[in-house]
């Protein structure tokens, strides 16, 4: 009986290619499949479900009963004074907190970069605020501003200044929230920026000195351009973190007093889990998602530039 050698068949290149495809590519696909399924389950599905809910009237207590309402949830936002106020507070908090964090973090990084005694210890110690759980930080701050026995009030009293429960004071509670964000994140900025500064070759500074550049010029023309990439990444990431932050506000003021610290995340939580308005909450979350997507695009482009 005649036999045909497959290697001499005109189809053999295709068979070999198919075998290679199966053995290489599909193996690769098979390897990433579990991760893809998991990401789909914990990220893609909830996101799509949230987007879907934004167009329905649905109660947390009876999520199966959904009524399609089109864009009316978004229309409701336009006449919702608390939503507008929460959005404004969120934008303001993000802008102020991230700006202060960057400026103070930059200053701290410049200080830590210098070979001063104790800088190593301070570098380690300064990270404590960043690694503290949010609830611990809030408890510390609440204790600090307690009437009568809070250390901040004790100092103010000794100076003959006004004391009060500062988280309960309209006009002060919001700045305190900003301070908590700054206190928490400045060390992270400092460490990241310091690492970027350390990667700048010392020869560049020496060359600049030989050319007669002063410290300010060296900072302006050598340091700043070479930490700009890390700076942008840090800023974009913290814009996202701060815009989304829930625990600091919820645990310290609950959005009060008089709605002075209500931000998007706390208002969405209240709508969905306290008012049972899952659809309306989802629609506000979608607005947040769109705003955050814009920053994510910036972040991804910065990453791609690298």
């Amino acid at each position: 009986m005649a036999t045909q050698d497959i290697s001499s068949s005109p189809l053999s290149p295709y068979v070999a290619e198919f075998k290679r495809f199966v053995s290489d590519t599909w193996l690769g696909y098979a390897m990433v499949l579990p991760a893809v399924i998991m990401l789909g389950a914990i990220i893609v599905y909830p996101t799509l479900r949230g987007i879907q809910l934004a167009f329905f009237e649905v109660s947390l207590l009876n999520p199966e009963q959904m009524t399609f309402v089109g864009l009316s949830n978004f229309g409701q936002m336009l006449s919702d004074a608390t939503f507008k106020s929460a959005l404004w507070h969120t934008v303001l908090l993000t802008a102020v907190a991230v700006s202060l964090q960057y400026l103070l973090g930059l200053g701290l990084a410049l200080a830590l970069k210098e070979k001063v005694p104790g800088a190593g210890f301070f570098r380690s110690a300064s990270m404590i605020t960043w690694v503290l759980p949010g609830i611990v930080m809030v408890i510390i701050f609440r204790f600090l501003v307690q009437p009568d026995f809070g250390p901040a009030n004790i100092v103010l009293a000794k100076l003959g200044l006004e004391t009060t429960y500062w988280f309960g004071r309209p006009g002060v509670a919001f700045p305190l929230i900003v301070v908590m964000h700054v206190w928490r994140n400045v060390p992270f900025y400092a460490i990241a920026l310091m690492a970027a500064m350390k990667s700048i070759p010392e020869t560049q500074y020496e060359a600049a000195r030989l050319d007669g550049a002063g410290p300010l010029q060296a900072f302006r023309y050598i340091t700043l351009p070479q930490i700009s990439y890390v700076s942008m990444i840090m800023i974009v990431l913290h814009v996202i973190f701060t815009f989304n932050n829930f625990d600091i506000v919820y645990l310290s003021t609950g959005g009060g007093p008089l709605g002075n610290t209500e931000v998007m995340s706390t208002y969405i939580y209240k709508q969905a889990f306290e008012q049972y308005a899952l659809g309306y909450g989802a629609s506000m979350a979608l607005v947040m998602l769109i705003i955050m997507m814009a920053f994510t695009v910036v972040y991804v482009r910065l990453e791609a530039r690298d």
Binding site: T163, T164, Y165, G168, T253, G256, P257
Partner: peptide, 12 residues
Amino acid sequence: GNPDQLGTGWQV
């Protein structure tokens, strides 16, 4: 009440 304690909860 003490107005300094306005806005507080059971913790106070």
